[in-house]
Design a protein around this nucleic acid. Structure first.
Lengths: 340, 340
DNA sequence: CTGAAAGCGCTTACAG
DNA sequence: CTGAAAGCGCTTACAG
């Protein structure tokens, strides 16, 4: 293999200094047209590419953003990553991804990312990461290098982008209520998760707002996956006075619930109406097509990337507005029907 | 913020040279226990983290592997990425991800990744990338820095890891055949895709092997998505002599097909048996649960990472064995039934 | 086992 | 607009 050419080689070929080559590449307008042309020609002739490590060392930045994903396996995050990637690539940042499901990064690791120059910024999709782990010795988190997206850490001052979870649940309850349902239950997400909490709280608030009461058994413990949905169905089937409408904290939960209800001879939506949350791609194809709360996850990713970019540039559009809450919409399909 | 400490600070605090600090950190056994202890103490005291850019520049490596994903949005790749990430993280490599759906990297960009020191190696999941774009001026691709996973580029010498697509299709046909079906059609993936081609070829070969003939209309053009499945259903419904069994090139295709057949009053599996390919998570939950070909995508990701690591270390387990073909298995569920 | 010193390949004040 | 030179923070032969 030919030796990789360096800026020195280009300078020699173009008959200029390395400074001029560097300038031509990073700020072409600081250089005369004539010089620019010959440098660019020399760059091509030597098939020169700037060495990232050298540039990074010199400029003290890495040109990379690290995203901490709760689970790469979960397709829910695919769209968010896609939105992030698109915007970051457009701003010439590399996207670095770490899955936090197996190895939870400790405080030391978290600090290393930023202080070791692995990444210029962090997008945290895992709301279980935060608090003391992100605190600096001299107080406060890396306020201008970190952002939460989708999930967040309660009480943190770190900027974040999220969906309006409470509004989503309210829309679901409104929908069921309009269909005549009054006995409405909520299958919760995993305990301790910020999204679960926000949705559960949303459920309680919205039910109260509508003057709908419900027994404590109507708050069914769950998780975000199919199996939890199945288990929830079994729990609900055992109730003396079962609900006719169920709002689930995720679509997968709803799928599992519907499948298990079916296995016990109950039909959705004929016997029970079910609403999901997320509107993952399969919601539309599922039988019955799932009524659910649509989150624009690509947009969420995009907004997160933009916010981080602003924060890194130290130019948040509005300093007070560092929590971006995106609206969600109910998509009515076939898993809900009028109470009969 | 306190100034970030550097190796010089640690050296001073420990009363040794920077060389010794460096050695303590990268090869602790080259240093006396006493020295090691005091250096480590100084590291903690100064909360020192090595500067990646400096290390990378000096060692001429980036410590990162770049994965080129056809579409981050497609949950199919989630598991592969997950497998990759786990192994790479374990080997202390960062995982860099680029989505190639919007911007196809050109030859220059591809070369930059490696020659600019952005990444030490490339995992290409997008089989449409290859050929001339990866050729070096002095011949041959970067044989020891690149690997294909899942997809591949026909005719390349670059090592690859893939599923046994032909075997999967054969298993599907065997299965339908055992159920008494003889009129079997194939809904293809997108034209020109290596996986589509491999599966289509597998279909033709296996049908011939079983002495099953079929009209050309039984090779239905498609794509990997739901909509293509719906369209395929409409095509099939128009046939004078429709098939009783259909092998799809992907699960999504099968979902769309089944949904649209249902919309036209045809039941799966009562009227038509359908087999998918991939075994994505939803296959099990779909109604009817989908009979499909299971690919272990996490394992595929893991194997790809391991192979790349070997290739980078220049120690492929067996030099001739640079194409790893992973077996797949048929999972029989409820979308297939005996011919009535 | 340890240290002094060179050098990885850039960028950027500084001076002209 | 251009060049000479310093320096980013490490690692690693080399010598002892």
């Amino acid at each position: 293999m030919n030796k990789r050419s360096k800026i020195q080689d280009v300078a020699k070929a173009a008959g200029v200094s390395t400074a001029t080559v560097s300038r031509t590449l990073s700020s072409p307008d600081k250089v005369s047209e004539k010089t620019r042309d010959s440098v660019l020609k020399a760059v091509r002739a030597t098939s020169y590419r700037v060495n990232r490590a050298a540039r990074n060392l010199r400029t003290q930045r890495s040109g990379a953003i690290l995203t901490l994903v709760p689970s790469l396996r979960n397709p829910f995050f695919s769209d968010i990553l896609s939105g992030l990637e698109r915007v970051l690539a457009g701003a010439d940042y590399n996207l670095l991804i770490t899955d936090t499901s197996e190895v939870r990064p400790d405080s030391n690791t978290l600090h290393s990312y930023l202080e070791g120059g692995q990444a210029d910024g962090l997008v945290i999709l895992d709301g279980s990461i935060g608090g003391a782990d992100l605190e600096l010795l001299n107080g406060g988190p890396y306020a201008d290098q970190i952002i939460y997206a989708c999930e967040w850490f309660e009480g943190t001052t770190v900027p974040s982008v999220r969906s309006d979870n409470a509004q989503g649940i309210e829309a679901a309850i409104d929908h069921l209520s309009e269909l005549g349902h009054t006995k409405i239950a909520h299958v919760c997400g995993p305990a301790g998760n910020v999204l679960s909490d926000a949705r559960k709280r949303g459920f309680m608030v919205s039910m109260a707002k509508k003057n709908l009461s419900y027994p404590v058994e109507y708050l069914v413990a769950g998780d975000f996956n199919l199996e939890a949905g199945r288990a929830a169905a079994r729990t609900i089937l055992k109730l003396e006075d079962p609900p006719t409408g169920v709002v689930c904290a995720s679509d997968e939960l709803a799928f599992g619930l519907i499948a298990e209800l079916g296995a016990h001879g109950l039909s959705v939506p004929d016997d029970v109406s079910v609403v999901g949350f997320d509107d993952i791609e399969m919601a539309e194809v599922f039988v019955p097509a799932l009524t659910t709360i649509h989150q624009d996850r690509i947009e969420l990713g995009r907004r997160a990337a933009k916010l981080l970019l602003e924060v890194l540039a130290d130019t948040p559009a509005d300093d007070s507005e560092t929590t971006v809450v995106l609206p969600v919409t109910l998509v009515a399909r076939n898993s809900t029907a009028p109470l009969t």
